[in-house]
């Protein structure tokens, strides 16, 4: 899996403030019978965006502005629930490259990193500022590991595993690295 390298992104934010947004909200299970990973953006947050008869709701995700946003701000504990990689696939297909929250669930975080979607767990104060300022022009700099907020919002550092940062900046997943360890794996299996 390869994706566009990610270094610096400046974009308006889209804010979904609810805490504990789970992967069943991000993409409902009935859309998981697909056998490819393409085109899932239309089902991102499907049950928030469409009524039962399929007509679009007035949810912010259905606006043209939203589709220009590359940075998603989620409430605390974003992405909890299942291991479905369809969740980050649907978000990247929709157009997001960054998810910021005060806490992000482990499996969702791991899946995001492998698909060019940068998960950022940020300081509570910065998170609150972001929740309070939807649509703000925010810069995420993966080189310096900084989130820069406009106006008087300030600049915040974030932590990311060095290896994951490297993969995101190169636009590669970990398969190649694992393949290079074939000898070590063979030696382990021989013991």
């Amino acid at each position: 899996m390869t994706f566009a390298p990610l270094t610096t992104i400046t974009s308006k934010t889209l804010v979904l403030p609810a805490a504990n947004i789970d992967t069943d909200q991000i993409i409902p299970a009935r859309f998981l019978t697909v056998t490819s990973r393409d085109g899932l953006g239309e089902h991102a947050f499907h049950d928030w965006r469409y009524t039962e008869d399929g007509s679009a709701t007035d949810h912010i995700l259905n606006t043209d502005d939203a589709k220009q946003c590359k940075i998603l701000i989620g409430g605390h504990n974003f992405g909890c629930g299942s291991s479905r990689e369809h969740a980050p696939w649907s978000l990247t297909d929709y157009g997001f490259r960054v998810v910021i929250s005060s806490e992000i669930a482990d499996i969702f975080k791991s899946n995001s990193l492998k698909n060019g979607l940068l998960p950022i767990v940020i300081d509570k104060r910065a998170h609150e500022w972001l929740l309070d300022n939807p649509g703000a022009d925010v810069t995420v700099d993966l080189e310096s590991c900084e989130v820069r907020l406009p106006r008087n919002g300030g600049t915040y550092k974030f932590e990311i595993d060095e290896f994951s940062r490297h993969c995101l900046m190169q636009g590669v997943d970990e398969m190649g690295y694992l393949e290079m360890q074939a000898d070590a794996i063979k030696a382990y299996e021989a013991n």
């Binding site: 479905r84 990689e85 499996i107 794996i185 299996e189």
Partner: peptide, 18 residues
Amino acid sequence: FGIGTTQVGHVLANQCLL
């Protein structure tokens, strides 16, 4: 523990995870 599909691929090919 649970893994995503990319990691399913990693394990199928290498029997290892990072």
